[in-house]
Amino acid sequence: MDSVRLDSWVWAVRLAKTRSQATAACRAGHVRVNDQPAKAAQPVRVGDEVRVRLHGFDRVYRVTGLASRRGSAADAARYFEDLTPPAPPRVERPAPVLRDRGAGRPTKRERRELDRLRGVER
C-alpha cells in the first residue's frame, strides 16, 4: 500500500473523532496537503505534510506511515510527526481590581483602572 485516502488517514491517526467528521473537515477546507486544499479522497503518501485546523488552531503533521484502520493512540502516534511550531508565551495580565459588594459607585480612579483592565480607551 503506497497511499491512503486523506479522510481515512485523518480518522485513523485520531485527528478526527469519526470518519464523517474527517470528511466534513476536508470539505470545509480545514485540511491541506503540501499547502494545497485537499478533498477527502485525495491520496496521502509517506512524507506528505498535512495541515489540519483543529479547535481554531492550525496543526502541522508529516506523514511517517499509512494507516487505514483506527487503532490505539500509541499506535496512531507512529504514523505522523508533529511539526507544529510552539505556541507563543502567554502574556500575564495584571490582577483585576476587585471591589467589595455594596461599596457604592466606583471612584474616578477606580473607573480608569476598570477601563484599562477591559481595554477601553477614552
Score class of each variant (00 low, 15 high):
residue 6 L to I: 08
residue 57 F to A: 15
residue 82 D to E: 11
residue 36 Q to N: 07
residue 50 V to Y: 00
residue 32 R to I: 06
residue 82 D to C: 08
residue 116 R to Q: 14
residue 24 A to W: 06
residue 99 R to L: 15
residue 61 Y to W: 12
residue 96 P to N: 10
residue 59 R to D: 05
residue 46 V to M: 04
residue 50 V to Q: 02
residue 108 K to G: 13
residue 75 D to A: 14
residue 93 R to F: 11
residue 6 L to T: 05
residue 118 R to Y: 09
residue 88 P to D: 07
residue 60 V to L: 12
residue 35 D to V: 09
residue 101 R to G: 07
residue 112 R to K: 13
residue 19 R to G: 03
residue 57 F to I: 14
residue 119 G to P: 06
residue 72 S to G: 11
residue 120 V to N: 13
residue 80 F to Y: 15
residue 100 D to N: 13
residue 53 R to Y: 08
residue 93 R to T: 12
residue 85 P to S: 05
residue 88 P to M: 08
residue 95 A to F: 10
residue 2 D to E: 12
residue 11 W to Q: 04
residue 94 P to E: 14
residue 13 V to M: 04
residue 37 P to F: 02
residue 110 E to L: 12
residue 120 V to R: 15
residue 13 V to T: 10
residue 94 P to H: 07
residue 13 V to K: 06
residue 77 A to R: 11
residue 37 P to M: 04
residue 121 E to A: 13
residue 62 R to V: 03
residue 59 R to I: 09
residue 75 D to Q: 15
residue 1 M to V: 11
residue 83 L to G: 04
residue 45 R to P: 00
residue 115 D to S: 14
residue 74 A to C: 05
residue 71 G to A: 06
residue 42 Q to H: 03
residue 89 P to S: 06
residue 51 R to Q: 11
residue 61 Y to S: 05
residue 94 P to R: 12
residue 36 Q to T: 09
residue 111 R to F: 02
residue 9 W to C: 01
residue 102 G to E: 09
residue 105 R to N: 07
residue 90 R to P: 05
residue 104 G to M: 06
residue 95 A to V: 14
residue 81 E to C: 01
residue 75 D to Y: 03
residue 44 V to G: 02
residue 85 P to G: 04
residue 60 V to C: 07
residue 2 D to S: 12
residue 88 P to N: 07
residue 36 Q to W: 07
residue 87 A to R: 15
residue 65 G to F: 06
residue 118 R to G: 09
residue 44 V to F: 00
residue 93 R to W: 11
residue 85 P to N: 11
residue 11 W to S: 01
residue 57 F to N: 13
residue 54 L to I: 15
residue 19 R to S: 03
residue 97 V to A: 09
residue 32 R to W: 15
residue 102 G to W: 07
residue 24 A to P: 05
residue 117 L to H: 13
residue 21 Q to C: 06
residue 27 R to H: 13
residue 67 A to R: 14
residue 96 P to L: 10
residue 57 F to T: 15
residue 70 R to Q: 04
residue 45 R to G: 00
residue 55 H to N: 14
residue 33 V to C: 05
residue 90 R to V: 12
residue 24 A to E: 13
residue 103 A to L: 02
residue 13 V to S: 05
residue 14 R to M: 03
residue 95 A to N: 09
residue 100 D to K: 15
residue 20 S to R: 12
residue 44 V to W: 02
residue 61 Y to D: 04
residue 74 A to W: 02
residue 23 T to R: 15
residue 51 R to C: 10
residue 117 L to C: 08
residue 117 L to M: 12
residue 16 A to M: 10
